[in-house]
């Protein structure tokens, strides 16, 4: 049995009268990439804040790296690194100064911090801008620096709260490559995202959060299977779907279906075979919710 990097059971949290998390259950195996998917306001950031000791839960049990986030905070902190939703970098300092500062604060000696800073500037393609103030950086550079700062010392569990929100496609892909590389080195990565493609690309396991609970978990494939199989769509000349028929996807089934339909549809009708995307899963799970499953 694999050890768990994160274990959450019966987690509750409310702000005033508003309940944000209500009886959340979750477990993330060590060394995996776990994506938490959910609409705005679903409780993603609150959950990350609880896991990273920033806020205290109202109830339930939360273990990170086997340590309790409420009673063993200091041990949890030695185990994690958090890259929050807003680039947590010091804008007045340069990239180099930011990295060295975090190195020293993390317990590295002065010379260790210097070596580590050079390594990270190279790895994250920030050598040219290393001595410029972060204020002048683009969004993508900030995010890269932010992630580099999280990796100054090796922490087994890395939290990334919406790591690519607001980035252009090129920067996003560059960041995905970095995240995949981190994962391949055996770290546990817990990320939140609104982008299904991101979850699909990066995660071993995806959990969908809605209304403060996990409404589904599984791999991307498992989740897609849960909303149903493939469908044959009939499209009119304007690419509008005029009819859908479920199918097993086999050649026999598709052929039989099309034969039945071929005489009853207007001329010019075209056919599309669609597999459910994570978008379909997401919409199904977060709009009319749990009864779909």
């Amino acid at each position: 049995m694999k050890s768990m990097a994160i274990e959450v059971s019966g987690l509750r949290k409310s702000f005033g009268k508003q309940s944000v998390l209500s009886g959340l259950e979750l477990s993330v195996p060590a060394g995996s990439v776990f994506a938490l998917l959910g609409p705005n306001g679903a409780g993603k950031t609150t959950l990350i804040h609880i896991l990273s000791t920033l806020i205290a839960p109202d109830g339930g049990k939360v273990l990170v790296g086997g340590y309790n986030v409420q009673t063993e905070q200091e041990l949890v902190k030695q185990h994690i690194s958090l890259t929050g939703q807003f680039a947590a970098v010091d804008e007045v300092l340069s990239a180099e100064e930011n990295l060295r500062m975090i190195g020293r604060l993390s317990g590295l000696s002065s010379s260790q911090s210097r070596t580590r800073t050079e390594e990270l500037l190279k790895a994250f393609d920030l050598v040219d801008a290393a001595k410029k103030r972060v204020k002048t950086y683009s969004g993508g550079m900030r995010r890269r620096l932010d992630l580099a700062i999280s990796l100054v010392v090796d922490r087994p569990v890395i939290f990334l709260d919406e790591p690519t929100t607001g980035l252009d496609t090129v920067s996003r892909r560059a960041l995905w490559d970095i995240i995949s590389e981190l994962a391949s080195q055996g770290r546990t990565i817990f990320l939140t995202t609104q982008y299904l493609e991101e979850a699909d690309q990066l995660a071993d396991q995806i959990a969908v959060i809605n209304g403060g609970r996990i409404v589904a978990t599984g791999s991307a494939e498992q989740l897609k299977a849960r909303v149903g199989g493939e469908v044959i769509e009939l499209l009119n000349g304007h690419d509008e779907v005029i009819h859908t028929v479920p199918t097993t996807g086999s050649i026999q089934d598709i052929s039989r279906t099309l034969n039945e339909l071929v005489h009853s549809v207007p001329p010019g009708t075209r056919v599309n075979i669609r597999r459910p995307s994570l978008d379909d899963v997401f919409v199904a799970l977060t709009t009319n919710g749990k009864e779909v499953l």
Partner: peptide, 11 residues
């Protein structure tokens, strides 16, 4: 600024 969250999650 987000930086305080980073400091607070460090030991």
């Amino acid at each position: 600024n987000g930086i305080i969250d980073r400091f607070r999650t460090m030991p």
